[in-house]
């Protein structure tokens, strides 16, 4: 009895950790954009859902696995993010928060209803052959798709880390994030870096969308929930911190899975919001944030 319970608890935790990796990748995009531009992307979930739909279309119409279409989606998202920032968001940097909020809300409304028009309100999922595969390790059973998605998310996060620490552009972006004026003084093209950052953030969340569709089917109405989820994760982890976004993703992934096991599944997001409230009150800079908000 107890052994059974412990096993299912351990199973829930590992499942939560695996999902949490993908959550972390999604939140990473939000965190990177905020950390550099101080713009809160209220359309984040909506952008990810575009990625989910693209991956689903690739699978449905071209029979391409989401794992294979992922790099293409990330590339498209990078370009689209770059263009969106340049054309629409750029003038709003430094403006009052409520104006940025309204702008991104308008973008979110446009995106959600665009998929409603194109794909309809039905839930869309991919049925891959690996759907029912699993890995066994002692008494543990892991869903293959979840393991693949989590590993891919880790690899992408690693690539992102390399980009920010090893490449010239990545370092410049970090410099601009630390000190906007300083970056201007040393002659960095801050506007281009911002567009680049939005592209990187969008690519992250697009890739997360391609992974997410292998775990859970998509509907247009999920988008707002993902935006909220991404917010909960980055605030818990620390807005602007890359480690924080990943750790927050794991924490929320695990807490959702465990709450789903111990409580009613419909109560699981209550636990996430409970964690968010506690973190906001006790450590508003987040678990991994450096300084106060």
């Amino acid at each position: 009895m107890t052994a059974d319970f412990l096993l299912s608890l351990a199973q829930a935790i590992t499942k939560g950790l695996l999902t949490g990796m993908v959550y972390g990748l999604m939140a990473l995009g939000l965190s990177v954009i905020f950390g550099v531009m101080r713009v809160v992307n209220f359309a984040h979930g909506e952008i990810m859902v575009v990625g989910m739909y693209l991956a689903w279309m690739g699978f449905e119409y071209l029979q391409v696995s989401p794992m294979l279409s992922l790099p293409v989606i990330a590339l498209i998202f990078f370009g689209a993010g770059y263009a969106l920032q340049r054309a629409v968001i750029s003038p709003f940097i430094g403006r009052p928060e409520h104006q940025q909020f309204l702008l991104l809300l308008a973008i979110a409304i446009l995106l959600v209803n665009a998929y409603l028009v194109v794909a309809g309100p039905d839930s869309r999922g991919v049925q891959m052959e690996s759907q029912f595969d699993s890995y066994e390790l002692g008494p543990f059973v892991f869903d293959a798709v979840r393991v693949h998605a989590a590993l891919t998310a880790v690899v992408i996060a690693g690539l992102l880390w390399l980009f920010f620490t090893r490449t010239r552009t990545g370092k410049s972006i970090r410099a601009a994030a630390d000190n906007n004026l300083g970056a201007l003084v040393v002659g960095l093209d801050v506007r281009r870096l911002y567009a680049f950052t939005f592209g990187v953030g969008a690519a992250c969340v697009g890739a997360a969308g391609a992974l997410m569709i292998t775990i859970i089917p998509v509907t247009p109405f999920l988008a707002a929930e993902y935006t909220l989820l991404a917010f909960v994760i980055v605030i818990v982890g620390g807005l602007g911190s890359m480690t924080g976004a990943l750790a927050g993703g794991l924490l929320i992934g695990v807490s959702e899975a465990v709450a789903g096991l111990l409580l009613q599944p419909s109560l699981k997001s209550m636990v996430s919001f409970g964690i968010l409230i506690l973190v906001l009150l006790l450590r508003p800079q987040g678990l991994f944030g450096k300084s106060g908000p």
Partner: peptide, 17 residues
């Protein structure tokens, strides 16, 4: 369906810009 909201979103976008 959804077209109404698209117009709505566009109008918001124009106003805020």
């Amino acid at each position: 369906s959804g077209l109404k909201q698209i117009f709505y979103g566009l109008a918001l976008l124009v106003i805020v810009m």
